[in-house]
Amino acid sequence: MKIDFTKNSDGLVPAIIQDAQTKNVLMLGYMNQEAFDKTIETNKVTFYSRTKNRLWTKGEESGNFLNLVGIKNDCDNDTLLVTVNPMGPTCHTGSATCWQEENLSSFGFLTKLESIIKDRKNNPENKDSYVASLFRKGINKVAQKVGEEAVEVVIEAKDDNDDLFLDESADLLFHYLILLQAKGFTLADIEEVLKKRH
């Protein structure tokens, strides 16, 4: 890996720290050649601290190390993307990230959809909501809908109409998200089970 430590007069390059699992950005630090070499040697992320004016291994005092998973450099060879498995909070304030955000898995639009479903569960009095009406009918009705949608996916899988197959697959996933919420779980819980199996 060619890293251009000479672009800045201080010999430092930015190192963006990203959780290898959640893909969330945790912090930004700076590395010189010596910090980079120590990171590779120890598998624990080490920076050059501009305030301490020395090498600094994240977690050397707190125990909240950033265990190295991988490093990539950008197209100009002057910025690093460092993927890690964090051992505890990353920020010195105790927050999971230096932007005071939780370090949770996000599944894009599915996470947004989960949030809407959770709101419908918590506010079932919404008479115009299909999801709220399912929650009002109880777990048996929700589970029944998942079963019906699963059968429809199987039927469409045997035919050649891709649009119908995708529509029924979306219906199945949608109703499964409702069932997860009805049981008090989320996609993140399923992700954890799959990680353990992997």
Rank of each mutant, 00 (worst) to 15 (best):
I17P: 00
S106W: 06
A132N: 02
R197W: 10
Y130I: 15
A150C: 11
P14R: 01
I190G: 13
W56H: 08
D37F: 07
D4I: 09
Q181E: 13
I3W: 05
W99H: 08
K72D: 10
L81K: 03
T39M: 05
D160Q: 11
T6W: 06
L180Q: 01
K196P: 00
Y176P: 00
S105Y: 10
E149A: 13
F36Y: 13
E60G: 03
F109N: 07
F174K: 11
G63P: 02
A150P: 02
T186S: 14
V142C: 03
D159C: 07
D4P: 09
Q100T: 14
C98M: 01
S105D: 06
V45E: 01
Q100V: 15
A35M: 01
E125K: 14
G147F: 11
L66Q: 09
L113G: 00
D160A: 06
P124N: 02
S105L: 15
S62G: 07
R50V: 11
G63K: 04
T186A: 13
G63T: 04
S106H: 14
N67K: 11
S105H: 12
E102F: 07
E156C: 09
S133W: 06
V13K: 01
L194T: 15
L110Y: 10
L28M: 14
N77G: 03
Y48F: 14
T39R: 00
D119A: 15
V146I: 13
F107M: 06
W99T: 13
L81C: 02
S62A: 03
E149K: 09
I17L: 12
L134K: 10
T22H: 04
L187N: 02
A150L: 14
M87R: 13
K112C: 06
F135E: 05
F5G: 01
D10E: 07
